[in-house]
Simulated scan of single mutants.
Amino acid sequence: MEKIFVCTVFLLSLTTIHHSSPLTGSTHSVLSLGGCLENCTCATGFIDCVALGMTAFPPHSVQGSVLNLSYNNLTHLDMSSLQQWPDLTRVYLAHNTIKSIQGADLTISLEHLDLSHNQLQVLHAFVFTQIPSLLLLNISHNNIHTISSQTFYLPTLTTLDISFNQIQELSVELLQSFTNLRRLYFKSNRLSRLLEGSLSHIEDFQVLDFSHNFLMDIEEKAFIGINVTHLDLGFNSFRKVPGVPLSKMRHISTLVLDGLIMESLPSQAIANIPVKFLSVSYCQQLTRLFENSITDLVGLETVTLNENPRLVYFHPGAVSRRAVFFLVNRFICI
């Protein structure tokens, strides 16, 4: 009896793309083997190319919504490279050595872009203007000192992290397109003042973090009409508490004034501010709180006065609202 052998051949998808090597500049082949870039790791929608020594943004060859290129050696980013990846919603480029960015001509459909821990110094005009659906932009931990007033057009952005840079001024024009911004992290820059009109076009914030700058002045109407859940002004260079601009805010759930450099809080030092929770902690020079130093704070529930090592005098009427809990260097007074 004749035997019949049936052979089934399974073909493994193999795509070869020719382009200039990101490592050497020579022409070579990058293989998309089994639906993933060579040497990368892929899961459903996620492409992980961390720490592969890449020096250029890879060409589009596979489908994915998240691309992680962190801890590589990219020195320049042409935003047009992202146009080749129409399915991407998140791109992580942290911990590269990116020194410059060139804007794109066409729309990019990103929602999340992480450029933290790079070597950016200057952001030129129109760099971030073709990303209409971007929700989060992280450019923290760079060396940014100059930003064009036309760098951004990001009307849907909700979170901007620009902390740990060298920015000396938050200009009135810089954030005007950020009509949906809810979280602004400006920690550890070199700001010395906040200007009227730079923030007041946005009514509601979840987070405003200006801690660890060199702020000495906040203009009277800089915060006018703003409602904020968490406002951090700690560890700045205020000679007195900026009570007037704070009093013009609509509401502050938590106000952090830690690290004040003042030796005392005189009467009316913190007054007429619509705040619920207040922290005045870690003030290395603070020695005295006088009568009514914290007063007329409608809605105030908690004052935290922790870790003020030189605080030796606390007037019984320092806080005029008696229904407040005080936490004073581990002691609680009611």
Rank of each mutant, 00 (worst) to 15 (best):
N180G: 06
F214R: 03
L191I: 13
I226D: 00
L208S: 04
V228L: 12
Y185T: 07
Q206D: 14
E169P: 09
V207K: 08
N189G: 12
R193W: 12
E169F: 07
N213E: 10
R190V: 01
L195S: 11
F186D: 05
L195W: 10
R182N: 13
G197C: 09
K221S: 04
F214C: 04
E173V: 03
T229K: 08
L199K: 01
S188T: 05
S171V: 07
T179R: 01
N227H: 08
V172E: 15
Q166L: 02
N189F: 13
H201Q: 14
N180I: 00
F205W: 12
G197P: 14
F205D: 05
L208I: 06
E169K: 03
Q206I: 10
S200G: 02
I202K: 00
F205I: 07
V207C: 13
S188F: 13
L208Y: 05
S171N: 05
F178R: 01
H212V: 03
G225P: 01
D204I: 15
L181A: 03
V228P: 15
A222F: 10
D204S: 11
L208R: 03
F178W: 01
I226R: 00
G225N: 11
L195I: 14
D217C: 00
S188D: 08
S211T: 06
T179Y: 00
L194E: 06
F210N: 11
S211R: 04
H201C: 14
N213I: 11
S198H: 05
L174F: 09
S171M: 05
N227L: 08
L170A: 01
G197V: 08
Q168H: 11
L174I: 07
N180W: 01
L191C: 10
Q176A: 08
L170C: 02
S192D: 06
H230D: 15
L181H: 05
D217G: 00
V172F: 12
E196R: 04
S192F: 09
D217V: 02
R182L: 10
Q168C: 11
T179H: 00
I224G: 00
K221M: 04
G225A: 09
S177A: 01
Q166E: 04
N213V: 12
R182K: 13
H201K: 11
L195P: 13
N213Q: 11
V172N: 13
H212C: 08
I226G: 00
